[in-house]
Design a protein around this nucleic acid. Structure first.
Length: 507
RNA sequence: GGCGCCAUCGUCUAGCGGUUAGGACGCCGGCCUCUCAAGCCGGUAACACGGGUUCGAUUCCCGUUGGCGCUACCA
């Protein structure tokens, strides 16, 4: 028995009956609108769907909901695809690769909706509505409760067949409304459990606008149906849409997929993350030097936990461990500090060579190194990266941490100068160090350390007293990697030149 | 307003009737130390409130309060 996707997409109106879905592999989807950048909330939804599919050996489908032509742009679409790719969330069907249940752009699926609407109309599950928005607004205002609980009054449902035909015949604009049946609708949510809705709370929603275009709640159902989606995992802001969608599935003679609603991601102020409030685009993290491994790891743990103790997981480990049972039900606030920590953890785990690869673009961007390094330059850069060691929280930090190694000249930080170089004795110390460094037999860290400790002893100073002026002199600041390694990497020439320059700044 | 979801340290969370309520980030202190990181050690800090159920509730039920979401011919 092979997967549903092996079936040619040419059958009847609905390719994937739900019974078939349950028998076959898991099919999940991420369906972004290209009306903005992918931010952390959306990325987490995509990640959870991806993890679910990969864990279950199912298929992850990317569908682009670009029916809002006015707000959808190519730029956003490209950015979303780039970000998902960067995160390593590859899709089995969707833009770029196609698939058996395409097209995967909603804007190209227009002709698949009409037959479904016709079917609902024919079955009496939907009806034409001639009320104009103005008329409805008017009735709403006149309703007893000031329109607070107003529902569509079904005026057009009561039209006789003749009245309806004649209105249609005279070309009156008509929307199509879904007729919400009596009763209650239960959503059996894999995350929230069973949630019950009274159908009287549901309006007879418009499924096709006056201009004939279908609306979101309807389109989603048809798309999910035709794409054979078995599990829908999305933000809980969609929970109240769910009963409507379930009802449409049933009216179409199909069973809905399994739903799972994720608690929302909040900004630090406790409000829902949105483009306007605290949402940071995934691309922004990339440009700042966050690793996709770290972002994926952090996002996975934002609303899901394995055992409450372990928190570093590779993508593969997440695929192996991920389980809906571990998904929490409460909204989670995004914590930039924890992400930074997580990122540092991941950078630390990178071997020097790979760390160098990742850091390189950030140095190139600052003009500190050339894009194509020869073997010698490459080796030198690796030494620098090795020396900088665990001091990076983001890849971008390399610029501040190692810039002085690569820049042709030092820029002495004015605060460091007044705090260290301007102090009495600094100049003599530097003068003494010039002697030592110029006469050192070699420039190895161990040699330098031995010489400088002897120098400090001789003068009755602590090592720190002579190291700090030296550090400021050669690096320009008060914080840097170990001074001996730093000097060795800088080399005798440059070290001495910098000390010479620094002596013009001493008090 | 209506409907819905949620409720353990500031934040992310573990807990699934009996625990000194555990871990992590952050913060504070110490160790290490040539500075800064990292690392190690220690500390800080939580079951929203009120009723039940029970021998016993953080845990189960109800209510209150609070937070959030949805309430379109947007998606």
């Amino acid at each position: 028995m092979c997967g549903a996707s092996d079936r040619p997409p040419s059958g009847g109106l609905f390719l994937a009956s739900s019974a078939e879905n349950q028998m076959s592999e898991m099919r999940v989807r991420f369906a972004p609108s290209p009306t903005g950048y992918l931010h952390t909330g959306g990325a987490r939804t995509a990640l959870y769907n991806w993890l679910l599919a990969r864990h279950a050996g199912g298929r992850f489908i990317l569908r682009i909901e670009d029916t809002d032509r006015a707000r959808s742009t190519r730029e956003y679409l490209d950015a979303i695809i780039e970000d998902l790719t960067w995160l390593g969330l590859d899709w089995d069907e969707g833009p770029g690769i196609g698939g058996p249940r395409g097209p995967y752009f909603q804007s190209e699926r227009a002709d698949t909706y009409a037959p479904a609407i016709e079917k609902l109309l024919a079955d009496g599950a939907a009806y034409h509505c001639f009320c104009t928005p103005e008329e409805i607004e008017e009735r709403k205002k006149r309703s007893p409760k000031e329109g607070r609980e107003w529902r569509y009054d079904r005026r057009c449902l009561d039209l006789s067949a003749e009245e309806r035909e004649s209105l249609l015949a005279e070309g009156r604009p008509a929307a199509v409304r879904f007729r919400v049946p009596e009763g209650t609708t239960t959503v059996d949510d894999t995350i929230l459990g069973s949630v019950e809705f009274d159908n009287t709370e549901l309006d007879d929603l418009v499924i096709a606008r006056t201009d004939g275009t279908p609306t979101y709640n309807f389109v989603v159902v048809v798309d999910d149906l035709m794409m054979g989606i078995t599990h829908v995992v999305r933000g809980s802001d969609h929970l109240s849409n769910t009963p409507k969608q379930v009802l449409i599935f049933r009216a179409l003679g199909e069973s809905p997929p399994r739903y799972g609603h994720l608690p929302l991601v909040l900004a630090q102020d406790g409000k829902v993350l949105s483009k306007r409030r605290g949402a940071v685009a995934v691309g922004e993290y990339r440009r700042e030097g966050y690793l996709p491994e770290a972002l994926v790891n952090y996002l996975a743990l934002l609303g899901w936990s394995y055992d409450g103790v372990r928190e570093i997981f590779t993508r593969d480990e997440l695929v192996e461990k991920f389980d809906v049972a571990g998904i929490g039900r409460k909204p989670a606030a995004f914590d930039p500090d924890k992400l930074r920590w997580m990122n540092a953890q991941w950078i630390k785990r990178l071997p020097v060579s790979e760390r160098t690869d990742r850091v390189l673009p950030f140095l190139v961007r600052e003009g500190l190194v050339a894009e194509d390094l020869d073997a010698g330059e490459r080796a030198h850069l690796e030494s620098i990266v090795e020396t900088v060691d665990d001091r990076l929280k983001t890849l971008g930090d390399i610029v501040g941490q190692a810039g002085f190694f690569l820049a042709s000249d030092v820029i002495h930080d004015s605060i460091a100068v007044s705090k260290v170089l301007a102090k009495p004795g600094a100049d003599e110390t530097l003068a003494g160090l010039q002697q030592i460094l110029s006469s050192a037999p070699d420039f190895e860290p161990a040699t330098l350390e031995k010489l400088m400790r002897a120098f400090a002893d001789e003068r009755g100073l602590s090592l720190g007293k002579i190291v700090q002026p030296l550090r400021v002199a050669v690096t320009g600041g008060t914080a840097s990697p170990g001074i001996f390694e730093t000097l060795a990497l800088l080399g005798r020439e440059r070290s001495l030149a910098r000390i010479e320059k620094a002596r013009t700044l001493t008090g």
